[in-house]
Simulated scan of single mutants.
Amino acid sequence: MKKAFDMSDLGLLCFYLGVEVRQDASGIALRQTHYAKLILELSGMMGCNKAQMKKAFDMSDLGLLCFYLGVEVRQDASGIALRQTHYAKHILELGGMMGCNPAHTPMEEWLKLSWDSTAEEVNTTYYWRLIRSLRYLVHTRPDLAFAIRYVSLFMERPTMEHLQDVKRILRYVVGTLDYGLHYGRAPNKARFVGYCDSDLADDVDTSKSTIGTMFFLDDCLVGWQSLKQKGVALSSCETEYIATTTIATQALWLSRMLAELLGRKVDVVELKVDNKSALALAKNPIFHERSKHIRIKYHFIRDCLEDGSIKASHIATTDQLADILTKSLGKTKFQEMRERIGLQQITCILLCCNLLFRLLSLVDAIHIKTPFVLFQWMGMNALIVYVLAASCL
């Protein structure tokens, strides 16, 4: 390779993408100390505890998790709260929208955009950066899922019209910076409930429909998705039928994963569908004339209903919570749905958690056991943050 390329031999690999590598005759050892924190659920299933791990590994116990990969975490007796306020502020700075007037919804009601926009084209790289940053925000903000997916369709040739709608999303984020999800303690007999909905031919360029799915563990939202169907549906019954099959596959996977975590069998997942025709088509294969053109894989839901691995029932359109993932809603309807899916304003999150972890890592690195050296090193504010945060852990 040295003959073909101008390169230098740096010896054995010792560091790559934040991972420290040690190679010797006994083998290869890998560890991440600066770019990742080790998160463990110490339970009986793992057969280990903190004391045993400290004997086997050189590690520090930083207490309860309060910050991880941009997600702020609050843990108390009532449950766990997640939000991304600090990360959202970085996105607003990137878009130059700090201090702008907030919007009540991320999109205008019944907004329709097209690839064939005649507006002036904008910088593609800048548009990509905004969209990709916003996508990560969806991890704790299901209210943004549909709007961000919709503007992501125009990343190939974005125009000023598309960028204005992205800035509308940022304006909504400004007014909801402290919003996040709260997970209360679930009872022993926790069960999954899934909601699925679709919007027929909402894409003006391809006539494809949008599917929205949500999963609740009791009253806690644990999974959501907004995606475009791969094919064109001929009716609302067909698109709802396809959506039901799509959510059925996810429901089975989630049910099995929960059973493995709990170590016992869990209740059957119940799906909530607001289209009676789609339910009849799934439960009664006699309707051959209306379903013979549907691809075979979408009939998977019939087997699930027959063997009892999944239940499906009708729900009123006004109670269909997945509606927020399929279309842009008006202010009143949107805020109602946002509250019903469990999104709320999260307060009293530990401040400056990222700084805290850096300070703790610094103290651990120089083997100093007292925090008072931080007063000399980082100033009084850093010491106050350290003491306040440590008292809450």
Rank of each mutant, 00 (worst) to 15 (best):
L374N: 04
S114F: 00
L144M: 14
Y127H: 07
F192P: 03
G379W: 04
S8F: 10
L262D: 07
A282G: 09
S43T: 15
K327C: 01
I341M: 07
V373E: 06
L221V: 05
D165Y: 13
A145W: 01
A312Y: 06
G27K: 10
H34S: 13
F216N: 06
G79I: 02
I368T: 13
P102R: 00
T249I: 06
Q320E: 07
L321T: 02
S361Y: 09
T244D: 12
L10C: 06
Q344E: 11
M155Q: 14
Y68P: 00
Q164M: 12
L279G: 02
A316T: 12
L62T: 01
K167I: 11
S236L: 07
S133T: 06
K55E: 14
S391E: 11
R191M: 06
K272Y: 03
A390M: 13
F375W: 14
T140V: 08
T33G: 08
T176M: 02
R31M: 11
S8A: 12
I301H: 00
A145D: 11
Y386D: 01
S235I: 08
H182P: 01
D61A: 02
K2P: 04
V193Y: 06
H86Y: 11
Y126L: 09
E270W: 08
L82R: 05
Y68I: 04
A4W: 08
V204G: 02
G95S: 10
L38F: 00
T318F: 05
V174D: 10
D116H: 09
N354Y: 08
S209N: 07
H314V: 00
L258Q: 12
R191Q: 12
V273S: 03
L92W: 05
M155P: 05
D319P: 01
S114L: 03
I296V: 15
N275K: 09
W253I: 07
H288F: 10
K265S: 14
M45N: 14
V151S: 03
K208P: 09
I324H: 03
K167L: 13
L38R: 00
V373Q: 11
A36C: 07
A77K: 14
T249F: 12
K55D: 12
K327T: 03
I346M: 11
H288Y: 07
H162C: 06
T244P: 04
E93A: 12
I39V: 13
F287T: 05
R141L: 03
L362H: 13
C352P: 00
R290W: 07
F154M: 01
K292A: 06
L181R: 02
V73G: 00
D199V: 12
D58N: 12
A119H: 13
P106L: 08
F372L: 13
Q75F: 02
I211N: 11
A248S: 15
A248F: 03
K167H: 14
D202Y: 06
N354V: 02
L134D: 03
P158T: 01
D116Q: 05
S391L: 10
G263N: 09
D197L: 03
H139L: 14
T118Y: 04
P142T: 04
G18M: 00
D319E: 15
E109P: 00
A389W: 04
H162A: 04
R295H: 13
A77S: 15
V173I: 15
